[in-house]
Amino acid sequence: MSTMIGGIDRRSAAPMYDQLRQLIVDSIEQDGLQPGDPLPGEHRLCEQYGVSRTVVRQALAQLEHEGLVERVKGKGTFVARPRTSESLVHTLVGLFEEVERRGGHVRSEILRHETVPADAEVADALELAEGDPVVVITRLRHVDGDAWSLSTTWMPQAVGAVTFGADLRETSLYRLLAEHGIAATHGVRSAEATVATHEQAGLLGVSAGSALLRLRSVSREESGRPIEFFVAYHRGDRSRFEFQLGPDSSQGSLVRIP
C-alpha cells in the first residue's frame, strides 16, 4: 500500500502540515493564482490531501504567518497581496518612492489640506512658536488599490505653500518639494506598535484594535531647518519594515516609553 496520499508522504520526517504548506505553495504557482484569488476551503483540502483539519489549519496558519495567504472570517482563504518591504524608518524616502521602486502604484486620497495654527506638539517638532501658521495635509494612502496608511504631515507655511495647487493624489510630496529647491538631508524617524482607533479602522479597512505601525518623523534641510513633521499609521498586515544592520549602532537608540 502506498504511503503517499494526495502528495503527502507519511514516511517522511517532515511534518504533514509542512508538507501540505509546500503543496499549497506549489499549487498557487502552478495554477497561476494571483493575489485575491480564493483557495480551496479546509474541508476540500482535507479531502484532497487525505489529512485532518488540524493539519490543514496548521499549514494555513504557517502560510498566513509568512504573508502568503490571508484568511477572512466567514469568507475563506485567499492568496495574499504582497507586503511592501519598507525602508521608511532608516532612509529619507517616502511611501511613494518606496513602492515605486518595486513597481507598485500609490494613490492618495486627500482628507485635509489647509493652513492652521501650530499646536504645541507641531510647534516643538518644527521649532516654531505655538500658533505659527503651518500647512497640514492628511492623506489616506492606497498601494495597488488597497488602503495602506493614514498619514498627517505638517510643514512651515513657507514650505507648505508650494503644495497648494498641486495634485497630491498621484504625486510624491518629497519630489514636489525638491522641484521647488526644498530637500531633506537628515532627520529623526521612529516606529512603534499601536492599535487602530474606530476612526482609523474605518479608513484603513481593518477592525478597531487591529495592529498598526506608527511612524513619527521630523525631516530637516542641510541647514538644519525642519521642513516636515509627520505621523503615519500603517496597516500591520500590509507593511513590513526593514532595517539595515551593521557593527556601528550609533545611528539608532532605544527610547523608553513612559
Rank of each mutant, 00 (worst) to 15 (best):
A158M: 00
V159F: 05
G160V: 08
A161L: 02
A161F: 00
V162N: 04
T163N: 03
F164G: 09
G165F: 07
G165T: 10
A166E: 15
L168W: 02
E170V: 10
S172A: 11
Y174I: 00
R175Q: 14
L176S: 02
L176R: 11
L176G: 02
L177M: 13
A178H: 07
A178D: 15
A178S: 15
A178T: 07
A178C: 02
E179V: 01
G181Y: 06
I182R: 09
I182L: 13
T185E: 14
T185L: 06
T185A: 07
G187N: 07
V188E: 15
V188I: 14
R189V: 13
S190Q: 12
E192G: 14
A193K: 05
T194Y: 05
T194Q: 10
V195G: 04
H198Y: 03
H198F: 07
E199A: 14
Q200F: 04
Q200A: 12
Q200V: 02
Q200S: 06
Q200G: 10
A201T: 08
L203K: 13
L204C: 09
L204A: 11
L204M: 07
G205P: 12
V206Q: 07
V206H: 07
V206N: 04
S207R: 13
A208H: 02
G209Q: 09
S210L: 03
L213N: 06
L213D: 03
R214L: 13
R214D: 00
S217Y: 00
V218L: 07
